[in-house]
Design a protein around this nucleic acid. Structure first.
Length: 558
RNA sequence: GCGCCCGUAGCUCAGUGGAUGAGAGCAACGGACUUCGGAUCCGUAGGUCGGGGGUUCGAAUCCCUCCGGGCGCCCCA
């Protein structure tokens, strides 16, 4: 709010400087930050220092020129040059009070913006092969992709959440899965059976087999041939069960997809073949050793890649090329791919392949998340079913709860390996950061209940006399609320939902500090009580908004 | 061997070009309500930001190099 006003006047001043020749035109971006000490002002700008070299002037000189031409702005009380050339702004004390009032009036809208201006972004995440239950390894992309989607929506993008099902006829793994399920079904039906050498030998395959026998006619299942076509048909039948399971697990975490896109569609609708023809016309493919190769080397890849195997089967790269076109055709302006670390190596070839196919490289964006390990008492817990350890994501959620699972998985930067501390996650006490942040919310609810019971009015708090809020801990809390919209925008821009987890911890702590020093309910000072209740209520709103982006609950009591 | 990620307090991690500004949580130690939720708060202690070189007015942050750890390197996905 105040921040965007400041950016406006700075931009204006800079333009004025350029127009009258006081400063040369520079492309440097204007940004604002907080000085290390509130004594040094509410905001500061380093533009003068960043321009210094290009302008060939000293930073302080530049700062002076800018300040001279700063338009009148009601929010700014004064500004001054500090240190090597910072421009520090001291805002009118009312700006913080306005912030609190805005929070109360805007409610769930506070912190949202329209920077995205309705641009359509598709976020594709999880997309684990539909050949088994979700496990810890691919669990991270779920909360991450969902929270990034929340962030993008919060800053005004139109977002679509998509799960890609790798269920095409040429998908080796999918076929193997079908063969494995078929083997188990035949075993259960007392028919001749054989598990493929590279087949899926996990026990869950037997569960799928039992489920399919329950859902379908035994006769039908028994007559499905044991060749490649039969394997594929069987895989499609089993996929239904797997996808149900995956969907339910993700729903436990509050994740719901707008679209479950089946790769099969690309084959059935001929999109793949069309794409191959296109590549031929573009002259970017050639045949060798009976396979069709894409000249990705000419687009920055280390070697050319096969798109159609000698067997005639299409590779993932081929389907990726048809798939991205489908995304764009369905209206996406920008596509974010959230992939696991096992796919990191294929990013360059996919990017090169897309370039070869004529896709604007600016429309795709790849985020690779790093691995998750379970730890207990500092020891890595192997995901071994035989040892009775947690293996699937569902088991983890059942063990520690959805809020804890989400919060933990979101609490680290996506580039960092994540150790999921089971011991800490199970802890239902102050040690567990999730309970810490939720406690702040529950405490606020309790204060508001108590105030109401004692006859204080908790409605229309935006009309309270907020000028009474001047304690350092009150000011600190208000500053925090004022920063919130900018922090959300930053987190969205950087695709960094882990910042939300840190923010929630930070806001909870700032609130608790305020609570410790500022008595809220005081029947001998009802004016002050109302002002503080307004601040408490505003904090509750921002906590809720933050929890909403994180995707965790805001409990009224604990 | 090549590629990607990581290396910051005892532990788990933020911070990724700015100021007298290296921080948080946990662990350790010492404190705080006869009143709103002590699942809380305050204080103390704890660092060659993996090593070295470079760029810069300024580097934990950018570049080079070395060391250490993780992951990946199929006509699998």
């Amino acid at each position: 709010m105040a921040e965007s006003e400041l950016l406006d006047v700075l931009t204006e001043a800079l333009r004025a400087c350029v127009e009258c020749g006081a400063l040369p035109r520079c492309e440097t971006e204007i940004s604002l930050e907080h000085p290390p000490d509130p004594e040094m002002g509410d905001f500061s700008c380093n533009i003068a220092m960043r321009m210094a070299r290009e302008a060939g002037m000293s930073p302080r000189e530049i700062a002076a020129e800018i300040i001279d031409r700063l338009p009148e702005c009601a929010a700014v009380e004064r500004c001054e040059i500090a240190g090597p050339g910072f421009i520090n702004f001291y805002l009118c004390p009312t700006w913080l009070q306005d912030t609190v009032r805005n929070v109360l009036l805007e409610g769930a809208e506070f912190g949202r913006s329209n920077r995205g201006a309705g641009t359509k972004i598709q976020v594709e995440f999880v997309s684990a092969n539909p050949v088994g239950p979700l496990h810890i390894g691919n669990a991270r992309g779920g909360p991450y992709g969902d929270a990034v989607a929340n962030l993008l929506e919060a800053v005004g993008y139109e977002v679509e959440r998509e799960y890609l099902l790798n269920d095409g006829p040429d998908n080796t793994q999918f076929g193997l899965f079908g063969a494995s399920v078929q083997a188990r079904i035949r075993e259960l039906l007392d028919l001749e059976w054989e598990m493929p050498e590279d087949g899926y030998k996990g026990e869950y395959i037997i569960d799928y087999a039992r489920e399919l026998i329950e859902r379908h006619d035994e006769e039908t299942l028994a007559t499905i041939p044991t060749d490649a076509d039969g394997h594929y048909r069987m895989a499609i039948l089993a996929e239904e069960v797997v996808v149900e399971e995956i969907r339910e697990t993700l729903e436990l975490l509050g994740i719901e997809f707008d679209s479950w896109f089946s790769e099969r569609e690309l084959f059935e609708e001929g999109a793949i073949d069309e794409k191959i023809d296109e590549l031929r016309e573009l002259g970017v493919v050639y045949e060798e050793d009976g396979a069709l190769w894409l000249r990705t080397t000419e687009f920055g890849d280390e070697e050319d890649r096969v798109v159609v195997r000698r067997s005639g089967a299409k590779t993932y790269l081929m389907t990726d090329l048809a798939y991205v076109e489908s995304k764009l055709a369905r209206g996406a302006d920008h596509c974010i791919y959230v992939w696991g670390p096992d796919h990191a190596a294929q990013v360059p070839s996919v990017q090169a392949g897309m370039a070869a196919a004529g896709v604007d490289p600016g429309v795709t964006e790849f985020v690779i998340h790093q691995i998750v390990r379970l730890t207990e008492g500092g020891q890595v817990v192997r995901m071994s079913k035989r040892a009775g350890n947690i293996v699937t994501l569902r088991e983890l959620i059942e063990e520690v709860g959805a809020d804890v699972t989400r919060f933990f998985l979101l609490s680290r930067s996506i580039d960092s390996h994540l150790d999921f501390d089971l011991e800490l996650a199970r802890e239902q006490s102050e040690e567990n950061p999730v309970y810490y942040v939720q406690y702040a919310h529950a405490r606020i609810c309790s204060i508001l209940r108590e105030a109401s019971q004692r006859g204080l009015c908790t409605d229309d708090l935006h009309e309270a006399d907020l000028t009474l809020l001047e304690h350092p801990d009150e000011l600190r809390l208000m500053r925090w609320l004022a920063d919130y919209p900018g922090e959300v925008a930053d987190a969205a821009e950087r695709r960094a939902p882990h910042r939300l987890a840190h923010m929630s911890r930070d806001l909870a702590q700032t609130f608790h500090q305020f609570y410790g020093t500022c008595r809220v309910i005081d029947l001998d000072a009802t004016e002050l009580s109302s002002a503080r209740l307004a601040l408490v209520s505003a904090t509750q709103t921002v906590l809720r908004n933050l929890f909403g982006l994180l995707g965790i609950n805001a409990p009224e009591e604990m």
